[in-house]
């Protein structure tokens, strides 16, 4: 299961994406995540277990943010994995998502 529903209460939906977030999985991820966009008021996505992310995966995150904004849903990413941070920094998108990023000490410096 690539997406895990961690908690759902008072309209706050906490999700975790696991494994790879790439062109091979984005279709599946989008379908799984879309249902929450129609119900939740606050979506928090835990990216700690994202092992790999490519442009398609990144684009999906941008899409989710875009949809959330247009539906007035509060949206946040947390626990970014090393792979996610590398891409967000490469593309200068940290600000776009506006979430605090915690950099772990045991990551290799990139």
């Amino acid at each position: 299961m690539a997406i895990q529903l961690k908690q759902q209460k008072k309209g706050v939906t906490q999700l975790a994406i696991q494994g790879e977030l790439t062109i091979y999985s984005v279709l599946e991820h989008k379908q799984a995540l879309s249902q929450y966009l129609s119900s939740a008021k606050d979506i928090q996505i835990d990216l700690a277990d994202v092992t790999e992310i490519d442009s398609a995966g990144l684009q999906l995150l941008m899409f989710l943010k875009q949809e959330a904004v247009s539906r007035d849903i509060s949206f946040s990413l947390s626990q970014h994995s090393e792979a996610v941070v590398e891409v967000l920094e490469l593309l200068n998108l940290s600000k776009h998502f506006g979430d605090p990023i915690v950099i772990s000490a045991d990551w290799k410096s990139s």
């Binding site: 398609a56 684009q59 941008m62 899409f63 949809e67």
Partner: peptide
């Protein structure tokens, strides 16, 4: 991604 469609029209691939 200014031309990204909304909702169902967006093809993640």
């Amino acid at each position: 991604a200014s031309e990204m469609p909304v909702d169902d029209d967006m093809d993640p691939e």
